[in-house]
Each structure stands twice: as C-alpha cells, then as structure tokens.
Nucleic acid binder design. Structure first.
Lengths: 335, 335
DNA sequence: ATTTTTTGTGGAAACGTTCCCAGTTTCATG
DNA sequence: CATGAAACTGGGAACGTTTCCACAAAAAAT
C-alpha cells in the first residue's frame, strides 16, 4: 500500500493536521517541517488526489470530449486546449470516439466528480439532452456544437462565410463546374458550409447540381473515393471543393493516380487549413480556421467560467475564417 | 450543490446502502428500484467519481505523459493509446510539455490517486529518479524511454536498425555525401539513430564528416534551417537524412524555395513515416514506425499490468521498423 | 412443517484528505 | 512585565462513496 498522511504523521511524530498544513503550505515550525520532510522522503509519500478533491471540491482537471482523434484538426485543437490548461496548472481528461448522444452522456457522467469543467466537441449533440443529463453547476464550453440560445458558452467557426468565400474565389477564377465533397449531412457544420457553397454558386449565376456532390466522412479515403466518383459525371468538374483538408488530400492523391495535374487540369480546395496543407504539392488553397487558437480560447473561457463561478456571463463566440490562397486553386502566389 | 447519494436515499425513502447497491448492480427489489430510479431522475443524480475511487481504489483512468503534442507523431501515439483505453472502459489523463526531469515528477505526483497506471513517454527521463519519485505499486509503461535493466515495462523502436537501413539504401543508390539533420543529442533515440547512420556510412566505406551534420529539434522549422545550412557546405550533399519526418518536411520546403528539385538534384529521407508523409510531393521515403500500434501496445501492456497486479512479468519490447521507399529518395515506385 | 438457502435491507465503519476550532506557545510592544 | 497579536498545534468532523455485517423475509429444500 502506498503511504498515507497518517503514516507520515506517525513516522514524524506530529499530528495529521500539521502534515496536512505543511502539504497545503500553511505555517509549520522549522523543527517539525524537517521531521515531516524526512518522513515523506522515507515513506515515499504522495498525497492522494481523489481524497483531496473529495474535500476541496477541486480536481484541477478538465474533461475533453472529442468525436474522434484522427488527423491534423483534432490534434491541433487538443494541443490548444492542453497548452492553455497546462499553463494554468490543469490537466486534461480526454475521451474520444463519441458520436452517439448516449455515449456522450455516459462519458460525461463517468467524469462527474473527477473534473472541474468540460469542453464538449460534438457537432451532433443536441442541447436538450445535454441539459437534462448534465449535472447542474458543471461549467461547460461547447466547441463546434450547434445549440440555439445562450444556455451554454460556445465557440464556433464561421462555416458559412468560409465556404462562401472560397467558392466565390473559384467562381471568380472562372470555374463554373465546382464539385463538392461533403461530410455527413447530419452534421451542422456541414450544413452551414453547404449553404455557403450553394449561395456562392447562386450569386455567381450557377445552378446547383446534385450530381456535383459526393457525401464523404471527413477522412482521406472518402476524399479519394469522392474524387474518383465525381470525375465520372458527364460534365467533368473543373474544380473540387472538399469540406475539409483531409478529404482534399485524399482527392489530390486520387487525381494524381489518374494523371490529372492540379491545378492545371483541375483545381482543388479544402477547409480548415491544417498544418499539413502548406506542405502538400501543390500547396493546398483552403479556408483558414484558427484551430489551435480555438482550442486555446475554449480553454480560457472554461477556466473563466470556473473562476467566476455564478457571476459568469455566457457568450457565444464565432471565429472568423480567412482565405489562404496557395497553388492548388491555380492562381496563388507560389509558396 | 449537486445531489448526493444521501439525497437520493432520502427522496426515495430507502437507505443509502440500498441506493449504492443499486448503483453497483447489486440485488434490489423491484419496488425500491423504481423509487430510486425516480429519485435519481428527479434530482439529476450522478455519483461522484472521486468519492467512489477513494474507497474502491479504482479510477478507470490512465495517466499519459508526453513531452509535447505537436505533429503527426504524438497525435498518432495518443490515438493508439486512447482507442485501446476507450475500448476497455478507461479514460486518459493527459499531460504534455514535460521535458525536464522535475516537471515530469511533479506531473506524476499530481496524478497520484487519480490514475490506475501511467504511460510515460519521455526520451530523456532517467530511471533512477523515476524510481525514487514514483509511488510504489503504480503500474507504469515506458514508451520510447531509455532505461537499462528490467525495472519497468517498456516499448521502444529499433532506432539503430531503422537508421542503418535507410542510410544503407542511400549508399546503395550511389550517394556518398549524405547529410544528417538530428534532434537534440541528449535524446537517446537520437543517439541510436546517429549510430545507425554512422555505421551504415562506415560499412559503405564513407567517412563520417561532422560538417554534414546539423542539430535540429524535431520540428519543421529546424529542418528548414538545417537544409539551408547544409547546402552551404563546400561539398554539397547529394542526400539529406532527417531524423524525423517533420524536419524532412521542413527541409523539403527549404529546397523548394531554393529551386532544387527533389529527388533529381538532391534526395531526402525521413524517419517515423507519419501519415502526412505519403501525401507530400514527392512522397517521402522514410523509416516506417508503427506509431499507432505502439500506442495500442503500450496501453495493452499497461492494462495487463493493472489486471495481473503482482503476478505481472515485466518486459522490454522493441518494435521493428521497415523501410518505406517512395519517390523522395529518387528510386521508389510511383505512389 | 421445519430447516436451509437465497434475497433484500439498513447501520456504520472505512477510504485519505482538508479545515474549522479551541487551545498553546512565542514574541513584539508599550 | 503584562498584554495582545501572531504563529503554531492537534482533535475531530466533514466530503460522498462502498462494503462489511447482522439480520429479516421469502423461497427452496428436506
């Protein structure tokens, strides 16, 4: 068994209270302090976090719920979360692969009593079931979740604006047949990006054709499949807009195997601007999303919510995107 | 305040013991079960993890210590760890950015009582200080750490063999001036890879030149700087071996800005074979390391150690690498 | 019908801390 | 040298669970 505070007290001949006071930085006489330190060393004592947080009601741990962990996007988010947490002396309790409502709730419940707050990232969670399953009082920040109203702190991206601007960029370059590789359509972010795509086409006087659309799943292989499929359409697209960089990468690989040159024969653009994208050949034009910063910001807001407790004012933030023009769309500066 | 088990007991008119028994799946009469369920629903009760693990001494949480979180390597490791943990009903308590000995120890101590075991990944931790600071009995698996003897379970990569084989590949292609971009030389993995590089050169009758070496830090920018520096040497290298793919990517970007074609004018190879590498142009020849699998395996071994408790037999595993020949070294099959 | 087993029940003692409280010592200060 | 403040001390009650125990009621076996 690991040594407890009682063992230390006995070994050093002081009371439990005094050892505890030493642990928490209270005033202890030099004499006793030395004895305690000796005993701690000897017994290899480390205080038990569970017991501690049971009484203090602080865990210095924050829960993070992710739908997945694959790829440059989630790892950047996690990095942003982790760095900020780390700076403030917090740890992260991570749990991924949650797509279903029920799973998320289960994971949240398992974290109860082990975390001081929660960052939930799940594009398809619904607010109602969150509310009814969440222990009251647990500070929470929603990242890229769709919720109406101001019941939660949330952080989102301007999905509509980003998609609109990159598709408009393509239309301005003269493209008229712009194919689309989407993620799952139940995903709210996907729907927003879709709206941006369609509006940009319409505003350019282009008809939206459903043959120009392939439903992927945000991973490389689906981008690959999507590109192959879209090239079979009677009127071959001159450009492909993939709803994230992962699928754009997959699509580019597919085009390469077909011997199609990017961007000369077909343009391709993505969304997210993950770190990898700049190193592709040709470098990928994409909608820049400040991924790392969003992670940071989510964590900052969560820590704020924890600190301010009930005085906390909830806010919904929407991060702007920006167009990063590289060579894959056919006109960028070299990079 | 969140509701406690006592509140539930009072609300439903049964004893605390009975509620607890219901929670843990013990036998409870239908009648009381219903009452309890009602009360739980009404009070929105979720049992407190800290209290629970204080008495059961199980947390269903595993600690993970990483030196950093940036890049394809760590995120793959983490994914492997997380997936396996998830499958077995465990969560991950993650803490990164630990390079110094002291920081690691502090992080481990902070996790005491909150985790059932630990995966420590820190190429420059030393076994002695681990041992003296670690609470006895806490199962632990070392990932890519250098420790002598069999005091710990550990998982490593065949760094020497990997480096040797990729450098030999280059010499067989006729390269004689093979430059090297390393990571920090205090890192044990770096030293092993260095050894492999040097032996491969010697075995090919090539003299090891210190002018052909640039000390980087495993991140892209240092690869970029390294490539620029190495091209200034009197005898320009015909190939560059970067000790990880991140630096290889940085180096490739540098060569591109200089207008040097890869692999025609200069070959470049990496180490790790992160997911990104296959999508580069040209695709990067690298030493494949089963990153995800190593994460999985580390977690499996940790869970074993936990399950078997004192009957556990420690083992040191070394994962083999394999050469992945793509185009960046000048001879690969197209991909 | 009696005994034995199973099933269900609540009281109370843990688990390893912190922190309040009441008390004791130490130490300037007038 | 009294006096009040400050520093220090240990006892013990929390914190929210589980689990051991003793026992009662119901079911099964004799």
């Amino acid at each position: 068994m690991a040594a407890t505070i009682k063992d230390v007290a006995k070994e050093s001949g002081v009371s439990v209270s005094t050892v505890s006071r030493w642990l928490t930085g209270g005033p202890v006489s030099t004499h006793k302090r030395e004895k305690i330190q000796l005993a701690v060393q000897k017994l290899n004592f480390v205080s038990n976090g569970a017991a501690r947080s049971l009484v203090t009601k602080k865990t210095y741990t924050l829960g993070v719920l992710l739908p997945d962990m694959y790829g440059g996007f989630y790892s950047e988010i996690l990095r942003g979360l982790d760095q900020t947490a780390q700076e403030r002396g917090y740890h992260l309790l991570v749990s991924s692969s949650h797509n279903e409502q029920r799973e998320i709730v289960r994971a949240i419940q398992a974290m109860q009593g082990r975390v001081d707050g929660l960052v939930v990232m799940s594009p398809d969670i619904d607010a109602a079931s969150l509310q009814s399953n969440l222990p009251a009082r647990l500070p929470i920040v929603l990242l890229n979740c769709y919720v109406e109203g101001d019941a939660y702190d949330s952080i989102n991206v301007d999905n509509y604006g980003g998609a609109y601007s990159i598709v408009r960029h393509l239309t301005r370059l003269g493209h008229r047949r712009i194919a689309l590789i989407t993620g799952s359509l139940v995903n709210h972010e996907v729907r927003e990006r879709l709206r941006g795509y369609e509006d940009a086409l319409r505003d350019a006087g282009i008809e939206v054709a459903s043959s120009m659309r392939y439903v992927g799943d945000f991973n490389e292989p689906s981008g690959h499949r999507g590109a192959l499929e879209l090239l079979h359409t009677p009127e071959r697209p001159t450009a492909i807009f993939a709803m994230n960089d992962g699928m754009a990468i997959g699509a580019m690989a597919a085009l390469r195997t077909l011997g199609l040159r990017v961007p000369e024969e077909i343009a391709i653009v993505g969304f997210d601007d993950i770190p990898t994208s700049q190193y592709l050949e040709p470098p990928l034009t994409s909608v820049h999303v400040p991924i790392f910063e969003m992670g940071q910001r989510a964590m900052e807001r969560l820590l704020m919510a924890i600190q301010e407790a009930n005085a906390h004012i909830r806010r919904q933030e929407k991060f702007p995107t920006s167009l990063v023009i590289r060579r894959s769309c056919g006109v960028g500066q070299r990079s």
